[in-house]
């Protein structure tokens, strides 16, 4: 049998993480119930845990809710909020709404892609640390160009400024461990 393992960051290779996440999936299913209407909230919480929706977990959820894996896959790919690709620990969203675009969101994005060596369609670093995305209008046009890193908003970005912020994050991240 071909083995498809969950992709994880190096420090997550300990089994306990797999176990904890899987327990969480079951806790979520038990708490929200096994009805079709619970599917979207379940996917949301599970995505928080894994930072994306792994195929085998979607199949597991389909089994638990007595749905076909194809229909769960359909829901998971319909909403932009769900990702079927692993995402980085830090998700960087660059606003590309009109205001941000006009005030130079592109160079900011280019700087990030270059720094993280993200070419072609690749949007997440190999160490699963950073994901770079563009979004349309974050609703903070006064601060344009705006960048959202996880839950934190950074305004009036320039390539230099974003690089400093990333330096800072990397430093904190290293200290965390």
């Amino acid at each position: 049998m071909k083995q498809e393992l969950l992709k994880t960051t190096p420090e997550e290779e300990q089994s306990s993480t797999y176990q904890r996440k899987f327990e969480k999936v079951n806790e979520v299913i038990n708490r929200l119930g096994r009805s079709r209407s619970a599917l979207i909230p379940i996917l949301q919480e599970v995505q928080e845990e894994y930072r994306y929706l792994p195929e085998e977990i979607l199949t597991y959820i389909a089994t638990a809710l007595d749905l076909s894996p194809a229909s769960v896959f359909g829901v998971a790919t319909f909403y932009a909020q769900f990702s079927l690709e692993p995402k980085g620990k830090y998700v960087i969203k660059i606003c590309d709404g009109t205001a941000c675009h006009v005030r130079g969101s592109d160079p900011v994005r280019e700087a990030l892609l270059k720094r993280f060596n993200l070419e072609g369609k690749k949007r997440t670093t190999d160490d699963l640390r950073f994901t770079v995305e563009t979004v349309s209008c974050l609703g903070a046009c006064g601060l344009a160009p705006v960048v959202l890193i996880n839950d934190k908003i950074y305004g009036q970005m320039t390539p230099e400024a974003i690089n400093l912020i990333i330096d800072e994050i990397m430093k904190e991240d290293a200290e965390d461990e």
Binding site: L58, T59, S68, P69, F73, G74, T77, F78
Partner: peptide
């Protein structure tokens, strides 16, 4: 009663395929 095929994606990238 199987549900092998379903829609996935949306808008211009919508497709009908098996799971994943």
């Amino acid at each position: 009663g199987i549900g092998v095929l379903d829609f996935n994606g949306r808008g211009s990238s919508a497709q009908v395929t098996p799971a994943f």
